[in-house]
Nucleic acid binder design. Structure first.
Lengths: 167, 167
DNA sequence: AACATAAATTTACAACGTAAATCAAATAAG
DNA sequence: CTTATTTGATTTACGTTGTAAATTTATGTT
């Protein structure tokens, strides 16, 4: 806090005139990060190309964000952070990212590319991306395993599994 | 630290005669948690039944551990914790859990159940389980999504995708 | 009994988040 | 243009935290 205040060129207690406490400040940072994240996803999904290509772009954008702003990504999903229920703006920003995901899956379904519950399918891909990234960032992967290869293989297998029959 | 010392019925500085600092203590706790975790997996894999059934048991044991000891699971994969490279016992305990996983996949491959790199395939399932659990625990899933259903659907689709052709 | 070694405690300090009191700057009322 | 009143920022101070250093207590050993 004192460092932050100094970086802002202001006295240690000044931020407290604008935020309730440290958690509120971090919640604002989290919300801003989720907004940047949602923007990156929206841009990727809106790019030209067929639905499958745009899905790849979305996945790439997801990973690129996490690796470009690891601190932000960490904070966004940090289990030690207070639940976002207490911070409406944060809830909203997180929901926005989820909606982007779901909307794109819906588009793929309407294109006949895939079938099933769009929100569930979106969450399936999300889980894979997040899982690999978390294991990668916490240094839990075996030294023999290349994160990019793992991610590609898992997304590939999951896609194939979904193409056969919907979950 | 002071609370811990009091719980041990000892003065605040006593733990420091046995551990370098707080991180070292937490690393020991993490290592112990990983050992319990590995034991749970080993037990599940060693249960009777065909390989596919035993895989299900392993997955169930994984999830059961995380939900039965959420604090432990959190700590084990906490990104804020110092890297386990500095704590050999911790590295060893984590590697033990990975080996259990890989060994079982190898068994499935030799049973002709599946094909591909066993360590990679093990990591694929691991990523899914970890991803869903983390999203669940950090309260990031959409209210419409049931974690158990999400996990089952994702594991199911991934399995189907792997059955078709190896990654 | 005297000493050496190990183990635990006491004391002390710097850093943290923040409550309370104080002070300064802007705006409104007379 | 004063004089209030509100707003914004700072200073001071307190309780907690992790832990370094000094000190005491317990445990062998000669």
């Amino acid at each position: 806090m004192r460092q932050l205040a100094q970086a802002l060129g202001v006295s240690p207690m000044t931020p407290y005139r604008y935020f309730a406490d440290k958690d509120a400040i971090l919640a604002a940072v989290r919300a801003a990060a989720f907004d940047r994240f949602a923007e990156a996803l929206e841009a990727a999904v809106a790019a030209p190309g067929d639905p499958v290509e745009r899905s790849r772009h979305a996945g790439d954008a997801y990973v690129a964000f996490a690796l470009r702003e690891p601190q932000a990504y960490r904070l966004m999903f940090d289990l030690n952070q207070p639940t976002e229920k207490d911070y409406p703006e944060l809830t909203a920003a997180a929901a926005r990212a989820r909606r982007t995901m779901t909307a794109h899956v819906e588009a793929m379904i309407q294109a006949g590319q895939i079938a099933g519950d769009p929100e569930l399918i979106g969450h399936m891909f999300w889980s894979v991306l997040h899982g690999v990234l978390m294991l990668q960032m916490s240094d839990k992967l075996s030294p023999n395993i290349d994160p990019d290869r793992l991610r590609a293989a898992t997304i590939g297998a999951l896609s194939r599994g979904l193409a056969v029959g919907p979950g």
